[in-house]
């Protein structure tokens, strides 16, 4: 468990090898070509697209209200009326899976988006400015890393409650340090390069240099880390659910559905199988996509075959 909940600090690693021009069509097209070759990553993309659109279309796909209880149909096995069966309050499991997907996916994606935004900003400023700013920000990163994250996660969830929004902030706020270190490392290496020097001589403002010149060159590893981070965030949400600190009822998330299935696994295995399968498929798919992206966006891999 520790591994899911522990922010894994990455070493400063310098990725990009060559400058990316302001017209990035070339490298992106190359990357896409490389990505396409990773068949499982493509499958993963399809799975994610499928799950995401199914969740978005939940209301269309399932006629049931996910929070509508029906105590006369508690723990019904899968049938034509309820393709995935019903749960311990007689609610349609498929409706809950679909609606729960919105929550689980949204929490995963948004938490990572938050983490990447914080991480890139901190890393970019530290790496570009250097000096005392860098020092200060890196001490902040050290500080965040020194916090035993699972313990802090539990404390924060206790204090601020467990609505989807707070979960996004809590999970995202504890997972950005790796990105910050990566981006800083990349920037430290890049900022002395000729094309940056050139931009600086031409009088470009720092923000412009960072956004137009440096970030595009460091974006590969950020995207890879972000993708893989999504699976971590989804698992974290489900782990918090296990401890009773996940999304509050009656809102469904895959994590709290799985936790609730605990008591009735022998009597109603379907209540456990479907949410488990959803988490499994999503995380697996995300991991494959991340793997494919790594192959595609990490220029070191060029010529690896």
């Amino acid at each position: 468990m520790t591994t899911v909940l522990t922010a894994r600090p990455n070493l400063p690693v310098v990725f990009a090898s060559g400058p990316v021009t302001t017209s990035p069509a070339g490298p992106w097209r190359l990357a896409w070509r490389r990505f396409r070759r990773h068949r499982l990553a493509i499958v993963g993309m399809v799975v994610i697209a499928f799950l995401a659109s199914a969740s978005l279309l939940a209301d269309v796909l399932s006629p049931y209200n996910p929070t509508k209880t029906n105590l006369l149909e508690m723990l019904d096995a899968p049938s034509v009326a309820h393709p995935m069966g019903t749960d311990e309050l007689g609610r349609d499991l498929m409706a809950r899976i679909l609606h729960g997907g919105r929550v689980s996916l949204a929490v995963g994606v948004l938490a990572v988006a938050l983490a990447v935004s914080i991480g890139s900003t901190v890393g970019a400023i530290a790496g570009y400015r250097g000096g005392w700013v860098d020092n200060l920000l890196m001490r902040l990163v050290d500080f965040m890393i020194a916090l035993p994250s699972i313990f802090v996660l539990i404390l924060l969830a206790t204090i601020y409650g467990t609505s989807p929004v707070t979960l996004v902030f809590v999970i995202g706020g504890l997972r950005w340090m790796g990105t910050a270190r990566q981006v800083r490392g990349a920037f430290l290496a890049l900022r002395e390069r000729e094309f940056v020097e050139a931009a600086r001589c031409l009088g470009a403002r720092p923000s412009r240099i960072i956004i137009r010149h440096l970030l595009p060159n460091a974006i590969g590893p950020i995207i890879v880390a972000a993708t893989l981070g999504i699976s971590g965030a989804i698992l974290t949400e489900s782990s918090l659910s296990y401890l009773g600190l996940g999304i509050q009822p009656p809102v469904a998330s895959w994590g709290n559905m799985l936790r609730n299935a605990q008591d009735q696994m022998t009597r109603a295995p379907w209540t456990a199988v479907f949410p488990g399968l959803m988490i499994f498929l999503t995380v697996l798919a995300v991991n494959y996509v991340g793997d494919g992206l790594r192959d595609a966006l990490d220029p070191r891999k060029i010529g690896s075959r």
Partner: peptide
């Protein structure tokens, strides 16, 4: 390896106990 990493630990643990 990916599969092992794709299920919540608590789920794996509970299943093993079951």
């Amino acid at each position: 390896a990916f599969a092992g990493n794709s299920l919540p630990t608590f789920w794996i643990g509970l299943m093993l106990v079951m």
